[in-house]
Design a protein around this nucleic acid. Sequence first.
DNA 1: ATAATACTTAAGTGTCCACTTGACAATTGA
DNA 2: TCAATTGTCAAGTGGACACTTAAGTATTAT
Lengths: 122, 122
Amino acid sequence: MAQATRAVGGGVGALVRQKANIDRVFHALGDRTRRAIVRKLSQGPISVSRLAEPLDMSLAAVVQHLQILEESGLVHTEKAGRVRTCRIEPAGFSAAEQWIGDCRSMWERRLDRLGDLLAEPN
Amino acid sequence: MAQATRAVGGGVGALVRQKANIDRVFHALGDRTRRAIVRKLSQGPISVSRLAEPLDMSLAAVVQHLQILEESGLVHTEKAGRVRTCRIEPAGFSAAEQWIGDCRSMWERRLDRLGDLLAEPN
DNA sequence: ATAATACTTAAGTGTCCACTTGACAATTGA
DNA sequence: TCAATTGTCAAGTGGACACTTAAGTATTAT
């Protein structure tokens, strides 16, 4: 999918940017509360205060989490009037998935070679 | 630890255990150094000290990271003689991938319904 | 037996980070 | 206009966490 790459930046700088971002993405997902927020947003856009409602912590805390999620590119927020609406940014997740995918392809290639060796008829 | 494999396999308890583990998995991947370790191990098994060599920090620090990675199920280590060999535990990653996949399927279903509505010929 | 290697364990340290509080700004409803 | 809603900002706190040092154990090499 050239789409995912394009969505983040496009061109050569995209890879660089993604590599810089992967840190923020995994750090963002490393927190329980932020994952809860992501799951909730996966169900659809919602305001900050409605997001905070079930989250046993102050509104300010939730806003801080949202800032981290937005800087990581996993979430997009937009303010209309006095209410800020938050939504998932699907492209943001591709960095994480790609990182894991890269690792997997590494060890799979290795295991394949290993299998070939064992199957080799010497 | 009755099988990290079990957590991935079938059974009802598997889901529960995975849900408990997802916290540790994402927390483990949230650290830059630990991701570097994972990438290295994706290339093949290696001893602790050889892992530590390029990692500008003490051996003890690396061992601590390895403990976290092992508890999260992403890495398996085994000691033979005086050398502990570390290797990737491929199954450990499926928890993370599945979590992201679950989110994605949520928002995709939603976007599909949205598309249907817009395409509806009223 | 001695020394070197490859960890292991425990305790301490500093920093980052999640969260709180409280004061403030902007928008909307009555 | 007044008040309630919705969010913003700054500063502070406590705990988690990455990392260090130092002393110890087990294994292998000489």
